[in-house]
């Protein structure tokens, strides 16, 4: 492995300054489960890494019924998965995070890393996008908030500028009467997603009409993508067989699957359809039962 500098600033500002001064040649080190592995495999060769371990407050998590969930980017995935607020208010997020890597990886990897690594197959971004999450980005002086669905620009690429660090992940308070689910297709129990389908439906319990729907897909495009064409078909309708079939037909419209060593384009598209149908069926069943299992 190529040698690199290791720095561990104790303030957010210092971390941003070091990254800015390095002009992109240094990388943020969070859990290291991607960065170190990629460096070892010579996929990356950073001049230095900047650990955020000593920056205070980056592992905090809090929930406010009005404002929503605030997650520090350095919070370990296993802590996200088991946090009370996540389990009770955002169960589909807890479920999605639980599918990432192995227990050992989740004990090390962070939610900020899973997002900023910008892998198209990452499991947390699609469900966070469905929940309408955004990220707060700081450069030591200013802050900006970016919707997660606008955050990714390509595989491993984001809107982050040199010297910027994700400071917080903000998930809006869940509205009343929702159903959310993340379904992951893989080759084995321990795998990255071949396809991930995240769905969040807001419904009217009285007439069972879906008032809002967000579907986001993993591993079928250079970035996690919203399945907008499909969403439009469903919104304003009841989930019946006809609507579900129409929606499934359009489930791949916003995707552009590829064939790689993991599987083929065709199987990926099949999985998107299959799991979209499953997610919609689950939503229908939930809504029909008045929001209980």
């Amino acid at each position: 492995m190529k040698a690199f500098d290791y720095e561990r600033p104790s303030t957010f500002e210092d971390a941003c300054r070091i990254l800015h001064a390095a002009g992109g040649s240094k990388k943020v080190l969070a859990g290291g489960t991607d960065l170190i592995v990629k460096t070892r495999h010579k996929v990356m060769a950073p001049e230095g890494v900047v650990s955020l371990k000593d920056v205070p407050g980056l592992s905090d998590i809090s929930f406010d019924p009005e404002k929503g969930l605030f997650i520090g980017p350095m919070l370990r995935l296993s802590d996200v998965e088991t946090a009370d607020a996540v389990k009770t208010q955002y169960p589909a997020l807890a479920a999605a995070v639980a599918t990432i890597g192995s227990t050992q990886v989740r004990n090390r990897a962070t939610i900020g890393g899973n997002i900023c690594n910008a892998a198209p197959s990452a499991d947390s971004p699609p469900i966070l996008m469905a929940y309408g999450a955004s990220v707060v980005i700081g450069d030591g002086k200013n802050e900006r908030e970016v919707l997660l669905e606008d955050f990714f620009t390509g595989p491993g690429e984001t809107v982050l500028r040199v010297g910027e660090i994700v400071k917080q992940i903000v998930v809006p308070a869940p509205p009343q009467n929702i159903f959310a689910i993340y379904i992951k297709a893989a080759r084995s129990a321990l795998d990255i997603a071949l396809v991930g389908v995240a769905l969040l439906a807001v419904f009217d319990p009285a007439d069972r009409v879906v008032k809002d729907l967000k579907v986001a897909l993993a591993a079928v495009a250079p970035t996690p993508v919203r399945s907008r064409q499909m969403e439009r078909i469903v919104i304003g309708n009841k989930l019946d067989d006809t609507i579900i079939e129409k929606a499934v037909v359009e489930s791949c419209t916003d995707a552009c699957s590829i064939t790689d060593i993991r599987t083929t384009e065709g199987y990926r598209d099949t999985l998107v359809e299959t799991h979209t149908r499953q997610a919609l069926e689950a939503a229908r069943s939930w809504i029909e039962k008045g929001g209980v299992l």
Binding site: A189, I192, I261
Partner: peptide, 16 residues
């Protein structure tokens, strides 16, 4: 060999 790691050489685990 392109799947030269456990990421893409799939081996059954406790999950299977």
């Amino acid at each position: 060999v392109v799947n030269d790691g456990f990421l893409d050489y799939k081996l059954p685990t406790f999950g299977e």
